[in-house]
Design a protein around this nucleic acid. Structure first.
Lengths: 128, 128
DNA sequence: TTACTTGTCCCATTGTCGTAGTACAATACG
DNA sequence: CGTATTGTACTACGACAATGGGACAAGTAA
């Protein structure tokens, strides 16, 4: 379900957090979908249940997930962002893109290459 | 010279190692070029000298750098031999894209919107 | 030679990550 | 009701990352 690499020096909690956010962003997880239980996901990824629990808790704090004891953890609806003005939105996206472009460029990727990569993932998503 | 983010959960030594390798791979550092001294780079990046020293030592062990006491540390291999495999490159871009997609989405941007934004920048750039 | 620079090594300390195990709280269900 | 399931909380522990400080080794240069 999610992809984790224990050999990679990046902390597991961060890999998992990114993985979950990505799954939501690409539509693999939709609003209201239930995530695996803390214990089940820990078994699947071969990591500790506490690590999973901390990620779920963190994502709930930031409003991405919603958890209900005895029931499970679900993707939470997030209506808040729309409050921004169009100008704020544009500026926000521009800043994020600035950072991303700089990051990929220093690693030797061309903008064409990057866009093509994103586009191929969009196609994969819409194929679901 | 190199880019390090202390707030990022990835270990500093790993960020620095990757940063140096990319600088060589992209030609910013060439064979025989001298790198900053251990202490100087530590000051520049605001990290500890031991951390820098360990990275240099590790990169010497893997043949990327060559160090001479009292003189300095230099690029050893030809960039071509250091070039990342296609798989490494793909994986790297995938990680960066994962992060970017997740980040933009949590801020309420759709993937379509993001790609369109990048595309408009590409058009502007090629117009120059 | 002496002084300086550079990389190397060692120690103690701090904080984070992750594991392991246990216990508890809230909910669902028969 | 009782029981299972699920999330939460807590402690203890080991490993690693990083810091700070100091000392040493090898080379350069005056």
């Amino acid at each position: 379900m999610f992809h984790i690499d224990a050999k990679h020096p990046t902390p597991l909690y961060h890999q998992l957090e990114r993985s979950i956010k990505f799954a939501i962003a690409t539509g693999k997880l939709r609003i209201g979908d239930q995530l695996p239980t803390v214990r089940q996901l820990a078994v699947d990824l071969r990591i500790n249940a506490n690590t999973v629990a901390k990620v779920y808790a963190e994502l709930e704090r930031s409003g991405v997930l919603q958890t209900r004891r005895g029931v499970g953890t679900f993707v939470h609806e997030r209506p808040a962002e729309l409050a921004f003005s169009r100008r704020d939105r544009d500026r926000n996206l521009r800043e994020l893109a600035d950072h991303f472009i700089a990051e990929t460029h220093t690693r030797g990727f061309t903008l064409d290459e990057v866009i093509e990569h994103l586009d191929s993932r969009r196609r994969k998503r819409s194929a679901n």
